[in-house]
Nucleic acid binder design. Sequence first.
DNA 1: ACGATGACCATAT
DNA 2: TATATGGCCATCG
Length: 120
Amino acid sequence: MTDPEPAFRDRVLALVARIPAGRVVTYGQLATLAGQPGAARQAGFVLNSLVGGSELPWQRVINAQGRVSTHKLGFGDLQEGLLRTEGIEFDASGRCDLARWQWWPEDSAQGQAAPPTPLL
DNA sequence: ACGATGACCATAT
DNA sequence: TATATGGCCATCG
């Protein structure tokens, strides 16, 4: 293990790739699932390096407040728009209900929010 | 080696 | 509910 640990980056990306459409995960959650609890900022750092030219659903990663954290980078509207296209609902303040849309891998049966088709 | 920075998080006011 | 503050951990100049 003398290497820095490219595993963390790979694990984060692998997790992002597994997020189903219409669901979201938080940075802290990604870090925890990747084996580095508390390293939420690093999870964001990893995503920052892959934006623009990735097949991964990077837009499904938001912060613990239920808001997109890319507004200052310029594509906040894009991210929120993509999520809305997938069925996620945001309120006027650009916030969504994590208890409702947050996704957890089957391995770690945690939250299991409501189904992707709540009403309608 | 050190200080500054960041797609963050939790708590307090 | 919104802003302020401290803590976190890896990267970079």
